[in-house]
Design a binder for these strands. Structure first.
Lengths: 134, 134
DNA sequence: ATTTATCCTTCTGGTTTGATAGGAAAAATG
DNA sequence: CATTTTTCCTATCAAACCAGAAGGATAAAT
């Protein structure tokens, strides 16, 4: 039941971009890597899906870097985790009934659905802006 | 962010024992394995820590099996998961500050603590009795 | 004695995780 | 135009974890 480094580092990355939001200069990965003590090479991998999902925009070349594509209060931690971790449901069957042949009769499914909702709510209720000011 | 089969199968196992609670005969693993379509050999492994934690009692030999050591309303899903999955916190630092050198300054820790509380509450509020009648 | 169970330890193939490596393409600067 | 800075893209790899099988020892009932 652990979040991987993808979700954790990715959230830190996004918080750095949120803190830089509204400034003229985009924030390069070298700077984020320095502040967060994570290798540039690894951050490069994490930022690809975030950009593909439209949360981030990039500018190449010298003085390039990344900026948020939306305001910090329009991006939730849940979105970030979904992109980097995939489905964060504690059990696959909650989102994919075909995962388990006992789907109909399983006496634990309601349990996992309750758990799933609690998790989703705890991360989708929080935006980058909320997290910054906390 | 997935529960492993240990937690999922273990919960199903415990629900079978809960359904059998109060009856004269203990429930053997062969029967649980048949009902849940899980191998006896794997269930044997899962039941060891549950017994060690005092949630289950056993009777060896023919007509042996397992019974809950407490009433179904005295055992929570959270306890079961804790025993079988270990610490279910989404990130290690929530329970172990020494995990991360940036513990003090990390801007995401409060986030994970909120998430952790939501998860714990969602499983510790539910007893085996609750789950049975749901 | 035989059968039905729990109990105990070990092993292993497969997948996922957490990176590192090497270089190509693009934009700014001098 | 050459250099530097930066994003972009693909591949590779060791270590850890997961899911389960295997093989047998011990105990109790019949």
């Amino acid at each position: 039941m652990k979040l991987s480094t993808r979700g954790r580092y990715g959230t830190r990355l996004m918080l750095q971009l949120a803190a830089n939001y509204g400034k003229d200069e985009p924030l390069p990965l070298t700077e984020i890597a320095r502040r967060e003590e994570i290798s540039v090479k690894y951050l490069e991998q994490l930022i690809i899906p975030l950009k593909a999902a439209g949360l981030i925009e990039s500018r190449r070349g010298a003085h390039g870097g990344y900026v948020l594509a939306k305001a910090p209060d329009e991006i939730t931690i849940g979105q970030i985790l979904q992109i980097l971790e995939g489905n964060i449901s504690p059990v696959p069957c909650v989102k994919d009934p075909s995962f388990c042949i006992k789907y109909e009769t399983c006496n634990t499914r309601k349990l996992w659905e309750t758990m799933d909702k609690a998790i989703i709510q705890s991360v989708c209720d929080v935006t980058l802006k909320d997290a910054l000011s906390a």
